[in-house]
Amino acid sequence: MKAEILNAILNARKNRLSVAVFTELSSGLQHIVARADADEALDKRFRFDQSGIEKSEAGESFVAIHNPPLRLVIIGAVHIAQSIIPMAQAANYDVTVIDPRGAFATGARFPGVTLIEDWPQDVLPKLGLDARTGFVALTHDPKIDDPALDLALRSEVFYIGALGSKKTQASRMERLKASGFDEAALARIHGPIGLKIGAVGAPEIAISIMAEMTQSLRLGG
């Protein structure tokens, strides 16, 4: 491996970009492909974190997938967030919780995560929402959730979930539509949040959310 390839991998990691390194096994020749340039087969490898051998007429190549670590951004230092966090951490997500309300965003309630007591619209641009980040809005409070959803919709996050009943969801969609998002953009929001598994209580709702987020991560959409 040439130093320039190694440095390109490390730079991609620093900038939270996914890259694949192809190594032609007969010659040792290597080249890098960014996720943005991936064909369908390679995109599947990215989604599944699946390095492996590809055979072609030219011989065998090893495809090494270099994905940045997964990240989960939670808007709302609420009860359900407390259930989601240990599950997300077990699934290798770095978790950040954002809530402007000091009474909610306390270290005692949220140990072991990055906890930011500030408005989402002030924090998220600095944080950078990218394709290896999942996003959930859990406050039910439009003045906290809406600006956060606005930024998530303009980003490449692989999952957007918003807590709230069908009614809450419908009025949320109306507000976001009024602010200029079309149907296709709004279809990215999973709401009511989570897979339909009949979840009862915060821990089971957290399971349904993690299941839905995993589905988006691995299968897309």
Binding site: A3, L10, R13, L25, F62, N67
Partner: peptide, 27 residues
């Protein structure tokens, strides 16, 4: 992918050490 391995590789290369990389390509 274990990135700390690659970071170590870059550090060692920077120290002008000879470096080789071994990767599991099939199991």
């Amino acid at each position: 992918m274990d990135h700390s391995v690659l970071e170590t590789a870059a550090d060692w290369l920077g120290e002008k050490r000879q470096v080789a990389l071994a990767t599991v390509i099939e199991t």
